[in-house]
């Protein structure tokens, strides 16, 4: 096939050079280092108590954050699409703040807010609730930085949803909850799951916000990516590479899952 438009060679050259040097080469460096370790050593690093504790904390706190964001995201998407009220546009714009705010700033603000003399901490600590330096702090930091995912994936689908089926259900006397469960829920479920997957992936990868609030105590509140950095600083490159590889594989798996879900969501949308 003859290409009509110019610039194929140039744009191909620029794109491949950039992706090669900036994205691919560093990832290859990690994979090569990981391959050098050998399976036995690799397994030993991953099953060391400190690594297991870090991975467990990361996964559990990530799951906690995702549950909160799933509920909050669904609520916000619903309220922003279905209701009109004063201040709605501001509320909508506020949803983007956690993405816009640098994670270090979020971490600083949250850790100070929840510390004993912060606005939230002063209320919670007398009740015996400690957030800073606990798994709750880790989960809160992860939750804040991934707030927009569920809202922004569910919102457009709800907006596109044709209300004629709902109206038909209303005229047939269906209970509002039944309408939500039978008419609306099946349509928004695929994008809801995409949002949850993205939110979870982001929580597992979050670093900046977490290190401020977690206190980073080994075996207790040390997340996996921080442990990888600590190994680097100890010149234990194998230890760092092994943990980084595991996190990379989890991230790529979640990327694949979200792409598959996305494809399903689009197929749903394509139906008339």
């Amino acid at each position: 096939m003859k290409r009509v438009l110019p610039g194929f060679g140039l744009s191909m050259g620029v794109t491949l050079t950039y992706l090669g040097v900036i994205v691919l080469l560093p990832l290859v460096a990690l994979v090569l280092r990981g391959a050098e370790i050998g399976p036995e050593r690799f397994w030993a690093i991953l099953t060391a108590p400190r690594t297991l504790a870090a991975l467990q904390l990361t996964l559990v706190a990530g799951a906690m954050a995702t549950v909160v964001n799933a509920a909050y995201g669904l609520l916000m998407a619903w309220v922003l699409v279905r209701y009109d009220f004063p201040g709605k546009r501001v509320l909508d714009a506020l949803m983007d703040i956690p993405f816009a705010l640098p994670t270090a700033v979020a971490g600083l603000a949250l850790s100070a807010l929840f510390s004993a003399n912060g606005w939230f901490g002063a209320l919670l600590e007398p009740m015996g609730i400690q957030v800073v330096f606990t798994i709750w702090g880790v989960a809160i930091a992860m939750s804040f930085t991934s707030i927009p995912f569920v809202v922004r994936t569910v919102q457009p689908v709800l907006e596109d949803l044709d209300t004629q089926y709902e109206q038909a259900a209303i005229t047939l006397g269906a209970h509002p909850f039944t309408i939500f469960r039978k008419v609306i829920w099946p349509v928004i479920l695929p994008s809801f799951l995409v949002g949850i997957t993205l939110s979870f992936a982001r929580s597992l990868g979050e670093f900046g916000a977490v290190v401020f609030i977690a206190g980073n105590l080994p075996m207790k509140t040390e997340i996996a990516s921080l442990l990888a950095v600590i190994r680097l600083e100890e010149y234990d490159y194998n230890g760092a590479a092994a943990i980084a590889m595991v996190l990379l594989v989890i991230a790529l798996l979640l990327l694949v899952v979200s792409n598959l879900l996305q494809a399903r969501a689009l197929r749903y949308k394509a139906k008339p």
Binding site: L30, E206, A228, V229, L247, L252
Partner: peptide, 10 residues
């Protein structure tokens, strides 16, 4: 999808 911290390690 790759966490920035992993990018830094790479």
């Amino acid at each position: 999808s790759v966490s920035p911290i992993i990018a830094g390690i790479c």
